[in-house]
Write a protein that binds this DNA or RNA. Structure first.
Length: 517
RNA sequence: GGCGCUAUCGAAUAAGGGUUUAGUUCGCGGCCCUCUCAAGGCUGAAAUCCGGGUUCGAAUCCCGGUAGCGCUACCA
């Protein structure tokens, strides 16, 4: 019987969600939705030392901004679910609140001989490690060394019982079987084999915070929550043999999820994985949303930088995956339809900020003008309140192909709402010479009599006038632009004039002629 | 050091043994359009890491090397 597809995104609330993490969440979401399955959010906060307040809320908000809403684990208000209900049957979805669940599974493994209590202190192990390092070796807690260390395998039973009863001072370690070839399959990478002798006896239960480690909590929760596929970052690939062995030890192989390990996101230049530093250095966001850490350090976000979530998601989807066709623009719903793990790339994907900007520009160009106007009004407030939707729409229509982000509209459209008060000096020097000061009043008089004042008529008439008189086209047109914009760059002169209206245009020309005299 | 993963133009990727003169997108250069800036159209430069093997034929399969990355915590 085919099981209902259920996947999870299981971040650790140790800081803001990195764009690589968003991609992992996205792929999980797409994979789940494609089969009309469930996408679950689970908070893996078993590291009490690294917990960061606000990180959990950030993760949920970031996913929501992207349009990714978990089916399970987060309620409508955006809070992690703590109490079980028909919609959220596996609550709580925060591992720190599930500690009671894990303990018995850890102990079950000990009683069945798959794990053991270890009493070595952190200091003892550190000493062992540095001693080995001095001899250019590596200390590993494994099949070779466990027999000579302080644990329930080496100590007399009554001594073990006494120490365990003290309820403190012990960890539980998984007893990696000796000399086994662990055979694994990855949905993206194919078949992988590893000799168990290269593995170490990983801690399953931590003494320091009385919590399970990732390995135990993860396997137990994935089992309990009936997860069918685990799609996670490549950094987990080395622990895959341990996880296989854990499923085997628990006897859960029949429902063991399939695994898919995603490659890492790499920095745009040089070598290594994408980090916050790269964003600061090269000037692009690494996080979906702005984040301010405890020290007051600010990390910019895609949202605040003016990216549309649709563009961000589209760009992210293509970082390590492609549909096999030449189509590049996909909505989230379209991605759900065409996504497949088979087409996920195995090698690391280098992030390219230019391509990210291009995606945003594409979305800006596709955006309905009505939305653009409403968003512009909301951002600009009183400053543009007196202008009509038609006028603002015309302005944005003229400028949308000249910017990458809606946040650029403010600076780019200033002159549409207020006549320029200064004129670019280089442009003045270039155009305001020879006959131009004498010509412009004639042009002004001509414009005053133009009817109708449309883009087409203004454009053709103006061009005809300039040609008939043998005036220099470039100088005249650019001087007009200079009067309208204050600079020598911008939309077509006739288009701007038609939009601004005759009165405004004449007033700007008068102002310009007067200023440059 | 050990273990694992990965390897196509500057970047993302396509080509799943022959359809390849290795395609597309971003970026870069040129031309066209043109009143400037964009946008658009056309176009140019630009890649199969190296070495063996399998095969009539290899970017594609296998082996070795090299390089990059990841892991090697009572972090996740």
């Amino acid at each position: 019987m085919e099981r209902r597809r259920r996947v999870r995104f299981a971040p650790s609330p140790t800081g803001p969600l990195h764009m690589g993490g968003v991609r992992t969440a996205l792929y999980n979401y797409l994979y789940a939705k494609q089969a009309d399955g469930d996408f679950i959010l689970r908070i893996e906060d078993t590291d009490s030392q690294r917990f960061v307040p606000g990180a959990e809320a950030y993760i949920i908000e970031a996913l929501r901004w992207c349009g990714i809403y978990p089916d399970e684990g987060v309620d409508e208000a955006g809070n992690v679910v703590e109490v079980a209900s028909p919609k959220h049957p596996h609550a709580p979805y925060r591992q720190s609140q599930r500690r009671g669940i894990y303990r018995k599974y850890a102990e079950e493994l000990v009683s069945r001989g798959y794990a053991y209590y270890a009493f070595d202190t952190a200091e003892e192990l550190t000493a062992l490690r540095s001693a080995a390092e001095a001899e250019k070796k590596t200390f590993t807690y494994n099949w070779e060394t466990r027999g000579s260390l302080c644990n329930s395998l080496t100590l007399p039973a009554d001594e073990v019982a006494r120490r365990v009863a003290e309820e403190t001072g012990w960890t539980i370690r998984f007893k990696i079987p000796e000399n086994r070839i662990v055979k694994m399959d990855d949905l993206i990478r194919g078949h992988i084999e590893v000799n168990s002798n290269t593995l170490d006896d990983k801690v399953l239960w931590k003494r320091v915070d009385e919590l399970p480690t990732y390995h135990l909590a993860n396997i137990v929760d994935d089992h309990l929550m009936e997860i069918t596929e685990v799609i996670r970052g490549e950094e987990w690939l080395p622990s895959l043999p341990l996880h296989y062995l854990l499923y085997e030890a628990f006897g859960w192989q029949d429902t063991q999820p399939r695994f898919a390990h995603l490659s890492l996101l790499l920095k745009p230049d040089g070598k290594g994985k994408l980090s916050k530093r790269d964003g600061d250095r090269l000037g692009f966001p690494v996080f979906p949303l702005r984040w301010v850490n405890a020290e007051g350090e600010v990390s910019r976000g895609y949202r605040e930088d003016g990216y549309y979530p649709e563009a961000f998601v589209n760009m992210l989807a293509f970082l390590g995956w492609n549909p096999g066709t030449e189509q590049e623009i996909f909505s989230l719903d379209e991605l759900v339809k065409v996504f497949s793990l088979e087409r996920v790339i195995k090698s690391g994907a280098r992030f390219n900020p230019d391509k990210a900007k291009w995606f945003n520009q594409e979305y800006l160009r596709m955006r309905p003008i009505g939305k653009l106007v409403a968003e512009f009004r909301a951002a600009e407030g009183d400053r543009v309140a007196g202008f009509s939707d038609e006028y603002i729409g015309g302005v944005l229509e003229l400028m949308r192909e000249r910017v990458h982000f809606p946040t650029e509209f403010h600076d780019a459209t200033l002159f549409f709402f207020e006549a320029p008060s200064t004129y670019d000096e280089a442009a003045v020097a270039k155009f305001w010479k020879d006959d131009i000061p004498a010509i412009m009043p004639q042009v002004r008089a001509f414009i005053a009599g133009l009817e109708p004042f449309t883009k087409e008529h203004v454009g053709e008439s103006l061009e005809g006038l300039i040609r008939e008189n043998g005036w220099p086209m470039g100088k005249v047109m650019n001087t007009l632009r200079l009067f309208l914009v204050g600079k020598s760059v911008g939309p077509g002169v006739a288009e701007m004039m038609a939009l601004m209206g005759r009165d405004e245009v004449l007033s700007r020309i008068d102002k310009g002629i007067a200023s440059l005299k």
